[in-house]
Design a protein around this nucleic acid. Structure first.
Lengths: 178, 178
DNA sequence: CGAATTCTGTAGTGATCGATACATAAAGGG
DNA sequence: CCCTTTATGTATCGATCACTACAGAATTCG
């Protein structure tokens, strides 16, 4: 997972992957089938562990709490000292060759899924009367995820954790934004 | 340039590149030296043409005008119907293998340069008294570029122009954010 | 303990990568 | 008009890609 995270899908060679996993190519193919399936499993694990902050954030009692937890989790996960900088769901395959289109589409769906979950959570906040009834929960979710993806790109560019957290704080000082 | 824009640096093969340019590999190597130099030239052209909105935006009379023009230009350029979706400066090489580290670092510097230009422009706005003196122009620039990079990721994921422009409008409705 | 079965490492598959050597075609100068 | 020079296309280079065949090691079960 760390290799895919750091180098992306196409930038991670089988040799590097198997060496990091401590197994040989044969064992990897017996266990996963091919490189794309291995990436799918790695993405599942990434979702469950480093990106677990998303599911936890959705359980925050208020919409602002959700947004705050999402951005704080993004900042933390994209700037872990011993892990690659950035978000695997973003830099795993943002652009790819024809052979990597399957994984690229997988990550598009992964990001879309994150957006949809946040949108449903904000819809609930509207339904419950926490957010004004004229609020567009989809737009709000797109706004928060856009900030998160932007933070991920900045982290991949080497921007530090403190500065990114300041950006998150600044953005959410005005809430709801619309 | 379009091939690099669409497939990224490592996802663009020499065969695809030369076919799109209408020349043979020999002519390409005689003219540019190698693939990395070709990418540098393509990035220069990208900066001068599709990304020209940045330089124009910096000449807007107000800081809000600058931010508005940057985000509007980002939305427009990342969702051109006949061009690849997204920003070449982001998806060109966000993650890469070891052999692509040079280009990855080049794009990190490219994004950092964009941030620095915006920061200087906002510093001028502070000096001229347009923005409150306690404003941190660097933080403001990081905020705007974060939104721009986030928009680029969303565009690469297939989000449409109208929705992205709504996000930009929503974000800048509160200005300055800090 | 011994035979069958599962698993793992080594070596090598064709395909494609970026990059070149060589031969041919076009262009420039006397 | 011919020779020199520059530029281009073809065919191929070694390296590496994802992937697999085969053989030996470990394990399981009678």
């Amino acid at each position: 997972m760390l290799v895919f995270w750091r180098h992306g899908y196409e930038g991670a060679s089988l040799a590097t992957l198997t060496e990091a996993m401590g197994i040989s190519t044969t064992s990897m193919y017996a266990a996963f089938g091919n490189k794309e399936e291995l990436f799918r499993k790695a993405l599942e694990r990434y979702t469950e562990v480093p990106s677990a902050y998303l599911a936890e954030a959705l359980e925050e009692p208020t919409a602002l709490g959700v947004a705050t937890a999402i951005l704080a989790g993004t900042v933390r996960t994209t700037t872990l000292p011993d892990n690659p900088s950035g978000c695997m769901g973003v830099q795993g395959a943002l652009a790819a060759s024809d052979s990597g289109r399957g994984v690229r589409d997988l990550l598009v769906a992964w990001r879309q899924n994150g957006y949809a979950q946040v949108g449903e959570r904000f819809q609930r906040a509207v339904d419950e009367g926490e957010l004004p009834p004229e609020t567009d929960p989809g737009l709000l979710a797109r706004y928060v995820t856009t900030l998160a993806f932007g933070i991920a790109v900045q982290a991949a560019s080497g921007v530090g954790r403190a500065e990114l957290q300041e950006i998150a704080d600044t953005a959410l000082r005005n809430w709801p934004p619309a």
